[in-house]
Amino acid sequence: MDTENCTNLYLQVCQTFLTCKYDDPTTFDDLYKLLPWLRQSLTCCVCANVIVDPMSSTQSHCQHFVCGKCKGGKMILRPQCSWCKDAEVFETNQHLVVLVMCFKKICQLIASSPIYEHILNYDQQRKKELAAMKSDSPAKSDTPSKRKRPQRKFARTYVTSSLLNIPVQQVLQDAMNLKDVDINTQPPTVECKT
């Protein structure tokens, strides 16, 4: 996802949070949806965690992000991106550095507000609903299928789906576990000797 979309999601989260009425839980509905989307938009394409020391490709076509430590690692994208195969084209993205810091701050504000209790209740209710849906689903047939598909360990669709289904409380926890970054420090420059 490009940084413009991430920024728009962040602004929507902020606007929704600031317009929530603490005595009316129905005003939190959009927040429950937007927080996992924002978390997913700031996900590393290698480790599937919130990006740390965000890097992005310098090629304009590619909009994938990775952590500084994950640079050069095998991406979980399916299908593979042909534009970001070369790890040498990834550089620190200052816009993303600031955006991740803002994500952490808004999550800290939400966690310290009265909305947090509603988030806990929402997550518990959602967990019960998902468990009820699983128990109501028909059992799979015991007969094996004629053709088995190979299991994919890290299919991007699975990662995206699982990230969007994580509890909102976990989104807040992921953000608060991020280390603080000094945005005034510049990334180290590498001098080439010829």
Rank of each mutant, 00 (worst) to 15 (best):
T185R: 15
P138K: 12
C84P: 00
A48L: 00
E91L: 13
F103V: 12
P188V: 12
F103S: 09
Q108N: 14
A111C: 09
N177C: 06
S145T: 08
A132M: 05
N177H: 06
F65K: 14
Q40H: 05
P79G: 11
I119G: 09
P188N: 06
F90G: 07
D24I: 08
K128M: 10
T143W: 05
S135H: 12
T185G: 03
K127D: 06
S82C: 13
W83M: 10
Q124S: 14
C67R: 04
I166A: 01
L31I: 00
E4S: 11
L34G: 02
A48K: 03
Q80L: 14
Y22S: 14
P54I: 06
P79Q: 06
A139H: 09
V98G: 08
C45R: 11
V97C: 11
S162L: 01
M75P: 01
K140H: 05
K134Y: 02
A48E: 01
I51F: 05
E91Q: 13
K179T: 02
C47T: 02
L172F: 00
L172E: 02
C20Y: 04
S162E: 00
D30V: 03
Q94Y: 04
C47Q: 00
F90H: 01
L9N: 02
L172P: 01
E117W: 06
C6Y: 03
V100H: 02
T58M: 15
N49G: 03
C84I: 02
F28K: 08
T92R: 14
C67M: 01
T16V: 09
C102Q: 13
R152H: 02
K179D: 09
S113E: 06
P79L: 08
E117C: 09
H95M: 07
Q125F: 10
Y122S: 03
H61K: 13
I76F: 00
T3P: 11
G73R: 03
R149N: 04
N184K: 12
V181T: 05
D23I: 08
K128R: 13
K153V: 07
M176P: 02
R152C: 03
K179L: 08
I183Q: 11
I183G: 11
L11H: 08
V89P: 00
P188C: 07
E88K: 15
S161A: 13
C192A: 15
M1T: 14
Y22T: 12
Q12S: 15
L31E: 05
